[in-house]
Computed example of a mutant assay.
Amino acid sequence: MSDWLRTILYQIVFYTGSVPIVVGVAFVAPFGQRAVIRHAHLWAKLNRWAARNILGITTRIEGVVPEGQFLIVSKHQAMFETTELQLIFGGPAMVLKRELTRIPMWGWATRLYGSMSVDREASAKALRQLMAEGAALRAQGRSVIVYPEGTRVLPGETPPLRSGFAGLYKAVGLPVVPVAVDSGRVMPKRGAKRPGVVTVKLGAIIPPGLPRREAEQRVWEAINALELTPPVKGDAMV
């Protein structure tokens, strides 16, 4: 089967299967956030299944997934990691661009799941709101995941972190787990998807309370680790 045929079949299966899962949130919402999180992970598992069985894409984890409450900061090359990392890290709250939270039904579901919306223009008001929501999630015991480049980037691109990362890092006061991914190699934003292995490389934990420039530099280097050095074979496969 050609890459284009696999891509079309994947899209049919994933997006058709997504509809009842999103609608189903209304039925599980009365049972609380834990029920919503479990239900939402059906969507992530659907994407993992379709990627593996239709596209021939699997995930390799380099490093050990830590236990505890963290600020998870990830490279962003494809939609793939936005669901895959939810499964790997057990359902952290999400930082989303504001326009995503306005999608009918889906936006409501993300709020029930646990999310913060951020204005990519990074106005002072938006940053204050982000910090307040981040602090509230920490008080709830939730880990938080953010994609600090602000949007998907092409393989090889290493843009600076958006300014909102520094505010969130300060607000939540949590140790940081930096994550490098290379999903864009096999799941490009445009064009056919290709069989292969997506590497998820977990960097060394970065402590809270560092000066802004040091924290940003350490995170930037860690999430771009796969851009600077080739991935190694081995470690966990999921």
Rank of each mutant, 00 (worst) to 15 (best):
I72H: 08
W49H: 11
R212K: 15
Q11C: 10
I61K: 04
R34F: 02
Q129V: 04
K189Y: 07
P231N: 09
V118F: 00
K75N: 12
A29Q: 14
E67I: 06
L87N: 05
A136H: 13
N224D: 06
V146M: 09
A35F: 09
P30D: 12
I72F: 02
G141M: 08
R48W: 00
H76Q: 13
I206M: 06
V64K: 11
L154W: 08
P211K: 08
T199G: 03
M187H: 05
I37R: 15
A136Q: 12
A171D: 05
R213A: 15
R185C: 05
R120C: 08
V118M: 09
M187E: 07
S115C: 15
T58G: 12
E62Q: 13
E84I: 02
D119P: 11
T229A: 15
R98G: 14
L168M: 10
A222E: 09
V19I: 15
E81P: 02
P207E: 13
P20G: 11
Y15C: 11
A51S: 15
H76L: 02
A192V: 03
G234L: 05
I72T: 09
V19A: 14
Q33C: 02
R162A: 10
T7V: 10
R213F: 06
T58A: 09
W43D: 11
R185W: 01
A180E: 08
V118S: 10
N224M: 08
G107M: 11
A93N: 07
A35N: 08
I57D: 01
R142E: 12
P195W: 08
E99H: 10
I145W: 00
R52N: 03
L154E: 15
I12Q: 03
R218H: 00
A124V: 14
G209H: 10
V23P: 01
P92H: 10
N47R: 04
L100C: 10
A132V: 01
T101L: 15
L85T: 03
E81H: 07
R213N: 14
G134S: 08
Q77R: 01
V232R: 14
R212H: 10
V198K: 05
E149I: 12
I223R: 07
L9I: 15
Q140Y: 11
V232E: 13
G32F: 12
V200Q: 00
W43F: 13
L174T: 01
A93D: 14
L96V: 12
Q11N: 15
G203R: 08
H39L: 13
P208M: 12
I206A: 09
A29I: 09
R52V: 03
T110C: 14
E227R: 11
P188M: 09
I37Y: 09
G134K: 03
V146I: 15
V172P: 01
V197E: 11
A204P: 05
D182R: 12
P188K: 06
L127I: 07
